[in-house]
Amino acid sequence: MKSEAKARPAPRVRGRRLGAFVFLSPGLTYLVVLLLVPLGLVLSYTVFQRGRFGGVVYEFTTENFTRLIDPLYLGVVGNSLRIAALTTLIALLIGYPTAYLIAQLPSRWKTLALVAVVLPFWTNFIIRVYAWIMLLSGPGLVNSALGKLGLGPYELLYHEGTIVTGLLYSYLPLMVLPLYSAIERLDPQLREASANLGASAFTTFRKVTLPLSVPGVLTGCLFVFVPSFGNFVIPEMLGGSKSTMVGNLIRDQFLKARDWPFGSTLALALIAVLVALLIVQAWAARRA
C-alpha cells in the first residue's frame, strides 16, 4: 500500500518532463539545427585548406590561425573594435538621457515614446541605409538645402564618421530599450528616500539611479556593440568600402576570395571576441 502511494507521483513527474520536452523541442531543434551544427561546421573548417573553387580540402593545416595574427588582419579587427566602441559610447551618451526621460513620462506617453523608438525597425534595413545615401550624397538633400543657404557642398558620405552615424542610427533603439526597462523598474521610493535624506537630485542620480541601472547599461552596450562589430553593409554602402571591418573581410573570403577556411577562422575570432565580452558583461552585471 505504502509503496504504491509513493510510486504514484512518479508518472506525473515523468509526464511533466515529457511535456517540458515537447514544448522545448521546437526551440531545441532550432538551436541544434540552425546554430550548433553550422557552428560546428565553421569550427571544423578552420583547420583545413582552401579549395581552388571554394569549399574545403580536408587536409590539416594551422596556416589559417597563423594568418590571423598577420598585422593586416589584426589591424582590421582593431579598426572594427574602435568603430564599434565609438558607436557604443555615443549610443550610451544619447540613449541614457532618452531612456531616463521616457521612464519619467506619464504612462500613455511612455507607450507612444517607445513606439517612436522602435518605429524605424519596421522598415527594411537596406532601405534605411539607402535613405542615408540620398540624404548625405553630394547632390543629396542635405547638400542641396545647404546650397540654398550658400554653403557647401560638403563631402558628407564615405567617411568613417558616416559609418559611425549609420551604425548609431541603426542600433540606437537596442541601447534605449534595455536602459528604459532597467530605469523604469527602479522603485520611486528609493529616490524619495534619497531626497529625504538630503541628497540633491544629481547626487540621487549618481548614487542611486545610475548604479542600479548598470545591468541595463551593460546589456544596451552589448546589444549595440555586437551587431556594429560584425556589420559589413554599412561600411560598404555608407563608408564606400574605404575602410574594412571584420564583417567585410569575412564576407569577401566567402564571396570573392573563395577561401572558406580562412573566412571561418575570421568568423571564429569574431565569435571569440564576442563571447569574451559576454563573459565580462555577465561578470560585471553580477557585481553591479
Binding site: L72, Y73, V76, N79, N248, L249, D252, Q253, D259
Partner: peptide, 19 residues
Amino acid sequence: LGQASTKYTRLSSEVTAQS
C-alpha cells in the same frame, strides 16, 4: 591563376583596409 589568386585577395584586403 590557381593558387596565385590568393595574391590578389591579399592585395584587395591590403588596399581597402589601408586608412
